[in-house]
Every structure is written in structure tokens, then in C-alpha cells.
């Protein structure tokens, strides 16, 4: 690849990410995500008695010992719905949004090539995935350690870990959740190439995440479960055992990579053969 086209791709990505973070919508979604750990921490702080074991969302009883567990609890709560909703909005909008606004053909007039535009759009959606789960994680750490301080935390296996280990473990949980969202973003990118209506694509992606999770609950479809992109969404509990169980983490990486490859290829097939009229 000649040097000038590479810099062109880089510049395109840079401008894409700048546009993404210049939108009010992006900041509103990140703010909404940030309220969840804040809400949880404040409620636990204000309640007269700390939550007992097994009460409320997982790990909530850990919060009073080590405030950083607010981040983990917030990720447990946001992963099934709130987080994927924001990813659905951003990824569903990637191509369909430009088409809807009539800006897609201008993007393609520049000698960018459709494949490069697709890659740049996907990478910027991935940047948002990192920002979204990073927001929950960092705000959770911040508010948790401010209200409860940091201290020792208990793993599911009953072993006690120190502050440094707790940071590493919650970072791993954040990484797992982010990787889960990358597959969803690829699905969103493909759906976004199918339509010119951004809202329709967003809704379709959001509905898919719900449908996949409902299918994951049906015992009769057990054979299908390992292939659902939502299969490992909540299996980050395995990262909080002693020693860490890596099986579900690595399985999830492979699964999401397969989703990215397949839906990326589908998006390429669709987008490169599509008549761009708007």
C-alpha cells in the first residue's frame, strides 16, 4: 500500500472518530452509562444496612469492602442491555446514517475505496465499544473508591485478593465485555449496509441482541448456544475465580473473531456491490 493512501486511511479514521465524539448523542450515551455505577454506589452508601451475600446483583455485597467492585457490578448490570443498546446505536448508524443523510456518496467520491471506508467505520465503532465499557469501568472505580475506599476483595472461590489484584481482575472483566461488544459491532455494521434508514438498523441490532439472549435461555436449543454471540457475555464470572478460568475468555475471543470475520465479509459483499444513490 503506497504511503499516501495509508495516511489517507489514517486521516479518515481520525476524522471519523472526531465526528463520533463531537456528537451530543455519543456523550449522552456515555453519560447514561456512567450514571449506572454512580446510582448503584450512592444507593448502597445511603442504605442503612449493607447488602448481604446473595442480595441484589452479583458482587454488590463486595462493594462495601472494596469500592472498585462497583465497576464489576455495574458491568454485570449493563452488559445484557444498556451497553449493547449504545453499541447498536453507533454500529447501526455507521453506513446507514451516512446514506440517510446523503453524505455517503461524498465519502466515496474521495479515493477512499469502499473497503477502506468500511474498515474505518468498523474501527471507529470499536473505539466507541472501548469508550463505553471503559466509562462504566472507570466511573465505577472512581465513585466506588471515593465512597467506600479500596481494600481487600473476596473472589468467588473465597480467596481474598489485594487492591492491585482487584485492579487487574476488573480490567480483565472490562476487556472481556469490550471483546463481546466487538462481535455485536460487526453485526451492526452489516445490518447498516442493508438499509438507508439509520434508525431501522439500530433497532434491528438492538432486537437481535434481545433475541439472541432469549434463545440462549431455551434449553431446547442447547446445541445452538455455543454459537450465539451473546453466549459468553456474562461468563466473566470465570475471571473472578482463583485461579482464573481462562476457558470461557479464550472461547469468547475465538467466537467474537468468527463473528467479526463473517459479518465483516458479509458487509463487504453487500457494501461493495451496492448501488450508492444517496
Amino acid at each position: 500500500m503506497p504511503a499516501d493512501t495509508r495516511t489517507h486511511g489514517g486521516a479518515l479514521l481520525g476524522s471519523e472518530v472526531r465526528v463520533l465524539f463531537r456528537r451530543w448523542r455519543t456523550w449522552a450515551m456515555l453519560a447514561a452509562l456512567a450514571t449506572i455505577p454512580i446510582l448503584m454506589a450512592v444507593v448502597v452508601r445511603l442504605s442503612s444496612e449493607p447488602p448481604g451475600p446473595g442480595e441484589g446483583p452479583p458482587f454488590l455485597d463486595q462493594v462495601t469492602n472494596n469500592g472498585m467492585f462497583v465497576a464489576v457490578t455495574a458491568l454485570v448490570v449493563t452488559t445484557p442491555l444498556f451497553l449493547p443498546l449504545t453499541i447498536a446505536v453507533v454500529s447501526g448508524d455507521t453506513i446507514a446514517g451516512e446514506a440517510g443523510l446523503g453524505t455517503l456518496r461524498y465519502l466515496l467520491v474521495a479515493p477512499a475505496g469502499r473497503l477502506r471506508l468500511l474498515v474505518v467505520k468498523y474501527v471507529s465503532a470499536c473505539v466507541f465499544c472501548v469508550a463505553a465499557s471503559g466509562t462504566v469501568l472507570l466511573v465505577g472505580w472512581g465513585i466506588g473508591s471515593a465512597l467506600f475506599g479500596t481494600g481487600e476483595a473476596t473472589l468467588l472461590s473465597g480467596d481474598t485478593i489485594g487492591v492491585g489484584d482487584a485492579v487487574v481482575r476488573s480490567l480483565l472483566v472490562g476487556a472481556h465485555v469490550t471483546i463481546c461488544m466487538l462481535g455485536l459491532a460487526a453485526v451492526g455494521l452489516f445490518i447498516s449496509t442493508l438499509t438507508d434508514a439509520g434508525v431501522g438498523a439500530m433497532a434491528a441490532v438492538a432486537v437481535l441482541t434481545i433475541v439472541a439472549q432469549v434463545l440462549g435461555q431455551l434449553e431446547q436449543l442447547a446445541w445452538l448456544h455455543p454459537w450465539l454471540f451473546t453466549h459468553h457475555w456474562l461468563s466473566f464470572a470465570d475471571l473472578l475465580r482463583a485461579p482464573i478460568v481462562w476457558t470461557s475468555f479464550t472461547e469468547n475471543v475465538l467466537l467474537q473473531a468468527a463473528y467479526v470475520a463473517f459479518f465483516g465479509a458479509l458487509a463487504y459483499g453487500r457494501f461493495s456491490t451496492k448501488d450508492v444513490l444517496s
Binding site: A258, A261, F262, A265, L266, Y268, G269, S272, T273
Partner: peptide
């Protein structure tokens, strides 16, 4: 040309399976 553009989408599942 249209068909070759869809080739990756057909190849990926084969590779995975």
C-alpha cells in the same frame, strides 16, 4: 465481479466449520 465480492462471506463459514 459481483460474485467475487461475496466470496469472502462464503469462505469464512467454510474456514470456521
Amino acid at each position: 465481479r459481483t460474485l467475487t465480492r461475496w466470496l469472502p462471506a462464503a469462505a469464512v463459514p467454510l474456514v470456521i466449520v
